[in-house]
Design a protein around this nucleic acid. Structure first.
Length: 494
RNA sequence: GGCCCCAUCGUAUAGCGGCCUAGUACGCUGCCCUCUCACGGCGGUAACACCGGUUCGAAUCCGGUUGGGGUCACCA
């Protein structure tokens, strides 16, 4: 039985993203979604979004909502699937039971499935007794059970699971990212597809749905690589009973690793997609960085737009080795994308991170402050979560400003503040150029101070912090009255 | 343990037999710019795991070794 793999390569490409709704979206999972999406958009094909909720104990509606939230936030649109519908629905496996039952019936009638009564414990005992490594697992021995054997088990009150009879031949396929892979006969065994209670398992419903939905390219995590031969075996059976006519191409994407050499664990905060959103990653930046985990656009540039990615993306270019998630690099890429934002767009995206300071919607005054202060901070942020620390003082009342301990100036600061206050109070043209001119005249030229010594105390007076947006521009935004009040206030505390 | 996958600077990658005394980016670092922090500019640091083979020529092809990872569920 020669495998007839899909030959789709253009608009006939059909890929899918089929997560289980358990837990919060993981960056590795989303990277898989991204590559599937990019491949669909690149080829002009379709992305199908299916939910594999066959594990009632672990699945949750909350997790399902988070999956939708994640894809929508990143702009990963799907053509068929949950929420949008399509001709191959329903797209939640929990609603497809009848479909599975029908396929199971056909497979049984065609002789591909057989009843298996042995329990996992019994199988282990059997292996031990045979001097066989228990890790070898099942030995296909129930293939040859007679009808009377089966009757005897039933008489004991046992309900059988159903196993798929796999071919006794080597099985090869051409992995899209790894090339030709061959599994020797015997390295994959007859596996359970239906539980004794009649509920089909992932190993069954996943390929069945792919077949029914006409999936041509299965791009998934490397952890599924070793289950591929049995899935292909199932596919051959499905082709035989007329469920489909071809086997999809497979592409196994590399892992996304964390620190050291371990898979980025679900417990690791960096694994949580929303953790990055909360810290102020923008979709453009995160998508760009995620794409870099196993793929690259060109040899000399790693900041690119989503459209550039679509134009260039092909799974065969994906690198097979595991990639480490490097937060520093991710932030750097994100910062580059922040700088690429138009000023108005940037201001709008700042709002969700400034809720402690700016009302929703912002008042006209707040809006005006943001308009002026935006350009000052856009080029100095890697993540939007830095906004409150950088801009908060602009939205704080003069007498409520708090001073960071490490910002408190030392000896001589009172003289600086007094001198600044004095010369600034004379100033009528309150522009940052004039503010700077006056202060330099008084403090640098006049008092002979080093700029660092002169402006440090002023920065603290104005912002309460050691690090702030440019000082003179900040004073201009605050206005003369407020600036002087803050300078005098700090002076009074020294 | 069986089977499978992987192997280029600390990290992500470029490289698909000669363009490689191995490029780019992040990181780290020196200098410049500078009111702080950034941004930006110019430098520096640092890698083909090992051993054989094929070839006139190998980071690139083949074999082995070593090291990592995955998988062997009536989870997904």
């Amino acid at each position: 039985m020669a495998p007839s793999f899909s030959t789709a390569s253009g608009s006939d490409v059909r890929v899918r993203f089929c997560p289980s709704p358990t837990g919060t979206p993981h960056v590795g999972l989303i990277r898989t979604a991204l590559f599937n999406w990019a491949y669909a958009r690149h080829t002009g094909g379709k992305l199908i979004f299916r939910i594999e909720d066959t594990d009632a104990a672990r699945d949750s509606e909350e997790s399902y909502e988070q999956l939708l939230d994640a894809l929508r936030w990143l702009g990963l649109t799907w053509d068929e699937g949950v929420e949008t519908g399509g001709p191959n629905g329903p797209y939640r496996q929990s609603q497809r039971t009848d479909i599975y039952l029908e396929v199971i019936g056909k497979l049984k009638d065609a002789g591909y499935l057989y009843e298996s009564f042995v329990t996992p414990d019994e199988m282990e005992a059997r292996n031990l007794a045979a001097g066989r490594d228990p890790k070898q697992g099942y030995d296909n021995f129930e293939r040859s059970l007679t009808e009377s054997d089966r009757e005897a088990f039933r008489a004991e009150g046992r309900q059988p699971a159903l196993r798929l009879r796999v071919p006794d031949d080597d099985l090869s396929f051409d992995d899209l990212v790894r090339g030709e892979i061959t599994f020797p006969a015997g390295s994959f065994v007859d596996f359970v597809v239906v539980r004794p209670n009649g509920a089909p398992l992932y190993t069954f419903v996943n390929p069945v749905d792919d077949a029914l939905m006409g999936i041509t390219h299965v791009l998934r995590g490397e952890d599924l690589l070793s289950s591929t031969p049995r899935q292909i075996a199932l596919y051959h059976a499905l082709i035989d009973i007329g469920v489909t006519t071809f086997v999809p191409r497979f592409g196994h994407l590399p892992y996304v690793m964390g620190e050291g050499n371990k898979k980025l664990s679900k417990r690791d905060p960096e694994a949580n997609l929303f953790h990055h959103r909360d810290r102020g990653f923008i979709p453009e930046g995160l998508v760009n960085y995620l794409a870099l985990l196993g793929w690259s656009l060109t040899h000399d540039r790693d900041v690119f737009s989503i459209d550039e990615m679509i134009a260039a993306f092909d799974v065969v270019d994906v690198n097979p080795n595991p990639a480490r998630f490097d937060l520093k690099k991710a932030e750097s890429i994100n910062g580059d994308h922040i700088r690429l934002l138009a000023a108005e767009d940037f201001e709008a995206r700042l709002l969700p991170y400034l809720t402690d300071y700016v009302s929703d919607p912002p008042t006209p005054l707040q809006k005006a402050i943001l308009r002026e202060a935006g350009p000052l901070v856009q080029e100095r942020m890697a993540v939007l979560g830095e906004a409150p620390g950088l801009l908060g003082f602009l939205f704080t009342a003069d007498d409520e400003l708090e001073y960071d301990a490490d910002a408190m100036p030392g000896e001589g600061a009172d003289l600086v503040l007094d001198a600044a206050s004095g010369s600034l109070s004379e100033l009528n043209d309150w522009s940052h150029e004039q503010i700077e001119r006056v202060l330099r005249e008084a403090l640098i030229d006049g008092a002979g101070l080093k700029p660092r010594v002169a402006f440090g105390p002023l920065r603290t007076a104005i912002s309460g912090k050691r690090i702030s947006p440019p000082l003179f521009e900040s004073m201009e935004i605050l206005g003369k009255e407020s600036s002087l009040a803050r300078i005098d206030r700090l002076a009074a505390r020294l």
